[in-house]
Design a protein around this nucleic acid. Structure first.
Length: 204
DNA sequence: GGTATGATGGGC
DNA sequence: CCCATCATACCC
């Protein structure tokens, strides 16, 4: 945990970072660092895999079915957390993007651990379990503890970025094929290395 | 290497 | 009924 104290001092990403086109934010989130203060334990990981969800027209995006209590946070300003429960057992962490009224988000799919951790950060469900992230954090401002994002040019090498279709959204018609999953090519912490079909992949 | 399936709960 | 998932079981 020696390095964690330095991480805690890094300035958070400003709201303006998130209130831009979602695909741009998704790409630039690769390499950024997610910090979690859980009961005083500092946890940290570097983002290596994300998916962009482009709003009401994107049939894979939860906001495509309109504004509901669950998805309301996506309709608000950028830079807040949207956490939902999936399959009754897991949670997924999203970062709300674009200005108020444009209900878009970026799903955080995998992190590379930066400190010793009690579990895996590979996969959206596992990373939420390991970092103790659940729906109580929906609406949380991701510029403040206990869950926040920072940039560290020295600690955040990005490597070659690749893109592919998103995972688990086959029901979304044409939107299922759009290459809106972004990941650091070759990074061992990227999910889907086992039996998941990743679809066509290309480097940027 | 691969595919199949159950767990489990809230949203619509 | 639907899942933006994971772990386990079983079969090549």
């Amino acid at each position: 945990m020696e390095g964690s104290l330095d991480l805690l001092r890094l300035p958070p990403l400003p709201r303006a970072f998130y209130e831009r086109p979602t695909e741009e934010v998704a790409r630039e989130l690769l390499g950024k660092i997610l910090l979690r203060d859980h009961d005083g334990r500092p946890l940290a990981g570097r983002i290596v895999e994300v998916e962009a969800y482009l709003g009401a027209h994107d049939l894979a995006c939860h906001s495509a079915r309109g504004k509901t209590p669950r998805t309301a946070v996506m309709f608000g300003p950028g830079g807040r957390a949207y956490v939902y429960m999936i399959y009754g057992m897991y949670h997924c962490l999203n970062v709300v993007t674009e200005p108020e009224g444009s209900p878009c988000a970026v799903l955080i799919r995998a992190l590379e651990p930066l400190v010793a951790l009690p579990g895996s950060l590979c996969g959206p469900g596992r990373l939420c379990r390991t970092l103790a992230i659940d729906r109580s954090l929906t609406g949380h401002d991701l510029a403040t503890p206990p869950l926040w994002l920072v940039d560290s040019p020295d600690l955040s090498p990005r490597g070659p970025i690749a893109r592919s279709p998103r995972i688990g959204v086959d029901y979304a018609g044409e939107w299922a094929e759009r290459p809106l999953r972004f990941f650091i090519d070759g990074n061992p912490w990227v999910s889907g290395a086992r039996s998941l079909k990743k679809g066509p992949t290309r480097t940027l």
